[in-house]
Amino acid sequence: MDWRSLILLALFAWAWEARAAAPDPVTSVMWDYYHQRLLNGEAFVFDDKVRLEVPPFAEDARQVPIQIDASAYRGKVKRILAWAELNPIPRILDFAPGEHLEPSLAIRIRVEQATPIRAAVLTDDGVWHIGSARVEAAGGGCTAPSVVRAEAGWEERLGQVLGKRFERGEDSRLRLQVSHPMDNGLVGGIPEFYIEQAELRDADGQVLGRIELFPAVSENPTLTLDLRGDQQTELWLRDNNGNEFQAAF
């Protein structure tokens, strides 16, 4: 093969790869920014095998349910990041599922306006698989007055956890809701006050999964995790004021 053929082949391969790379399914002008800022510009692919479910529109911009399912990469997922690209506080969570947790999760968030949402799933080969969705919204979810703080006695309920374990075949789904205002610092001069760390542990204190939370997460946060097996678990939470809360499932 002479050098001209090699160049042609290289050009062909390059063109092929460029064509094969899927375009941004939500065509967001903010993608490059978040790719650099949150993923350090690392290798990525837009990937519909990372399922990111959101409602088509936000009926309540303060409580928008999002659901991430990366079970297509079960056993290979190191981290899952989620963010809302046009939010004043874009970051939602940073989830490191251990081997006993499915790489899936559901949570509710605040959106300030219609926005693309992303779930970036880092697999053990170093590639980020990007799930994308878009939610329409009239807006104002991040700057709406606190519902929790308007309720009498909310301080006494701080850190209370409602929860339940649901048997799903061999596995268990864990759902919980924590009483917490999750103040994001954008409302009424109230400084940031939010749960920033969550760990799910087994009965021996071994960590099954870690989640870092950000104040895009709604008030009284709800969280759903899928556990492989049926072992007893403990949930440990800490907010940015150092309050710790624990619950057992």
Binding site: P55, P56, F57, E59, D60, Q63, G159, Q160, V161, L162, G163, K164, R175, L176, Q177, T222, L235, F245, Q246, A247, A248, F249
Partner: peptide
């Protein structure tokens, strides 16, 4: 249905769950 799930489901969820905090 999308709207009603947002309005009503939180009440059903809370009724189905119990206190699990220590």
């Amino acid at each position: 249905l999308i709207r009603s799930v947002s309005h009503l489901y939180p009440r059903y969820e809370r009724n189905a769950m119990g206190r699990v905090d220590r």
